[in-house]
């Protein structure tokens, strides 16, 4: 039971990092990233290949993941930033699929559909419970750092400019904000955070494969961020833990629903994710932790 909870807290922390990413891109800046799973994958592969085959220490792998995520994010968003925001949504959706196809087929680089197993964690895995507790501490600390940094960024003049862009690009541009540049910066940073989450996932579980990075993960994170409140890092992080609790709770709920087959139970579980997202968007769009009215600059 305890190891199950620790495991869920680690996974929850990784999802919370993804939620921080989406909070910055979507909640604060208004850029919808439907390719979150793709950036998650980029980070996972960057760090896993370098540490496993390149002999690079794990912390450097994490840095490499951040860089790879930022570069990928910039490349993906740069062609669409001047367009309506829904174009970015379509491009990112395609990006995630493209990453999965490339990861499956470029065997020399990614190990192909076999994936990469035995990814080093930077500490011995046979420590048992200790391994998981230390992992939990590391993931939680990193999440805390990202959360703190994001809170400060959001409160800074840069963050206010991003919100101005989100509310009305034209007004923001007239007010002298460099809209495209601001959007590119925010999106690249957000993608770097998602990539960091991917790297941590790989090091913690020791295994990554293209099949992990499916679009469903992106929907999960949207659910998390919507539940918590998309404009605030705190809300997004808590939303991620709620998400994991929800996903696991549906597992137990499915066991007690009478008269349905295993497939039907599985279908109900997946449908409940979609229904929860629809209901939240409709009735509690600002989440549990709504964005506060902005304080005057200090």
């Amino acid at each position: 039971m305890v190891s199950y909870l620790i495991f869920l807290l680690v996974v929850g922390g990784i999802y919370a990092l993804l939620a921080q990413s989406l909070c910055l891109a979507w909640g604060v800046t208004g850029l919808v990233n439907l390719g979150l799973a793709g950036f998650f994958a980029i980070g996972a592969y960057a760090s896993a290949t370098l540490t496993k085959w390149g002999g690079v220490p794990v912390p450097l792998g994490l840095v490499a993941a951040l860089v790879a995520g930022a570069v990928a994010g910039f490349v993906v968003c740069v062609s669409t930033l001047r367009l309506r925001d829904d174009y970015l949504a379509i491009v990112t959706l395609g990006f995630a699929e493209a990453v999965r196809v490339i990861a499956s087929n470029e065997i020399w680089l990614t190990g192909g559909t076999d994936g990469i197993s035995g990814i080093p964690a930077g500490m011995p895995r046979d420590w048992g419970q200790r391994f998981h507790i230390i992992s939990l501490v590391i993931v939680t600390i990193l999440l805390g750092l990202v959360w703190l940094a994001l809170r400060r960024l959001v409160a800074s003049p840069w963050g206010r400019a991003l919100r101005a862009v989100r509310e009305d690009q034209i007004v923001a541009a007239v007010a002298g904000k460099r809209v495209t540049r601001l959007k590119a910066e925010a999106f690249a940073i957000a993608c770097a955070i998602a990539a960091l989450a991917g790297a941590l996932y790989g090091h913690y579980t020791s295994y990554i494969a293209p099949e992990i990075f499916q679009p469903l993960i992106t929907i999960y994170v949207f659910l998390a961020v919507t539940a918590g409140g998309n404009g605030r890092p705190t809300g997004a992080a808590i939303g991620a833990y709620i998400l994991i609790a929800f996903l696991e709770a549906t597992r137990f709920a499915a066991e007690i629903v009478p008269g349905v087959s295993a497939v039907q139970a599985a279908a109900l579980r997946e449908a409940s994710v979609g229904i929860a997202l629809i209901l939240l968007l409709r009735f509690r769009q600002r989440g549990l932790f709504p964005e506060l009215n902005q304080k005057a600059p200090a």
């Binding site: 929907i219 949207f222 919507t226 449908a271 994710v273 979609g274 229904i275 629809i278």
Partner: peptide, 9 residues
């Protein structure tokens, strides 16, 4: 986003 969720349902 709502339509994406509805598709899953």
């Amino acid at each position: 986003i709502a339509s994406l969720a509805a598709g899953l349902v």
